[in-house]
């Protein structure tokens, strides 16, 4: 497989000696235009990799914040086609920042796997995280994605033991997403010492970068996790920053893109000081 924007970005950060800040937000939340403004603001605020959420009606692995974001997006008329359009509009002005689509399989299955991969590639998508496709279902999307030159990023979890890790890592590319806890998005952060130990364990099985997500909400947490991980994923906190500037009827009480940029700048500082802290 050829190198992707993800590979290049991760290699560059490794050379700089700092972890990546991976930011998740929901495509189309609260509406298409606002989501595009948010996405465009992310790299400048310090996001290294963008995870673009594909809304789904039944997000089984997500907590209340991301569930609500998905519903706002769907209510605003978001579809998978529009999420791809969002990526391609962003891509027109930024050819460097990697974009990873994250969500559930059904909308992709209904769109059609081959058509989806072709359109995703054309829209400048670099990787996919599909929560409900474990390695046992690799023939569905993972293998076709790899053939199409799109990274398939697998989730590893605390229940993925050493016996199972090789199977999970087998067709993974781009990076490994370590889920810090058994739980849904937005839960409280797990014991950071345990997380670091798990990252080391995974690194013993793969040369791929390991990014850690689920539960990271503050710059301080990003700094601590970033001391051992190759990347820190923040999602719920960003989604909440958007929700916080929406009134009861969905009206904007402040600029969501600005609110996200402020939060991400703080997180970026945390991530950038991670290795300094580790070296202390």
């Amino acid at each position: 497989m050829m190198t992707t924007r993800i590979d290049r970005r991760m290699a560059k950060l490794k050379a700089e000696g700092r972890p990546a800040l991976v930011t998740y937000f929901m495509g189309g939340d609260p509406d298409y235009d606002t989501a595009l403004a948010i996405m465009k603001a992310l790299p400048g605020a310090g996001s290294d990799v963008i995870e673009l959420g594909m809304p789904f009606s039944d997000p089984m692995a997500d907590g209340p914040a991301i569930q609500a974001a998905g519903l706002r997006a769907l209510k605003g008329g978001q579809t998978l086609a529009k999420t791809l359009k969002l990526a391609s509009e962003f891509r027109a002005g930024d050819d460097e920042t990697p974009i990873v689509l994250m969500g559930y399989y059904n909308p992709i299955y209904i769109y059609g796997v081959d058509r989806f991969l072709a359109d995703a590639k054309a829209s400048g998508i670099d990787g996919l995280i599909v929560v409900d496709l474990p390695p046992e279902m690799d023939e569905e999307l993972c293998i076709p994605a790899l053939k199409a030159g799109v990274n398939f990023i697998r989730l590893a979890t605390p229940t993925t033991d050493d016996k199972r890790l090789p199977k999970v890592l087998e067709n993974t590319s781009g990076f490994v997403y370590y889920v810090s806890m058994t739980g849904i998005t937005g839960s409280a952060l797990a014991d950071t010492a345990k997380v670091s130990a798990a990252v080391r364990r995974i690194k013993g099985h793969t040369a791929l970068p390991v990014c850690v997500g689920f539960g990271v909400k503050t710059a301080e947490q990003a700094r601590v996790i970033g001391a051992s991980a190759d990347g820190v994923v923040v999602g719920t906190a960003i989604v909440n920053a958007i929700a916080n500037v929406l009134g009861p009827k969905g009206e904007k009480t402040a600029d969501p893109a600005e609110a996200v940029a402020t939060l991400v700048s703080g997180l970026a500082q945390g991530v950038r000081s991670a290795r300094l802290a580790a070296a202390e």
């Binding site: 692995a61 399989y105 046992e136 989730l155 590893a156 605390p158 993925t160 199972r164 889920v179």
Partner: peptide
């Protein structure tokens, strides 16, 4: 063996649940 009835069935779950 994969839990399929033709194209139906399967194991479309999050990795956390797979070992269980």
């Amino acid at each position: 063996e994969q839990g399929m009835f033709g194209i139906f069935g399967g194991r479309f779950v999050a990795e956390t649940l797979m070992p269980l």
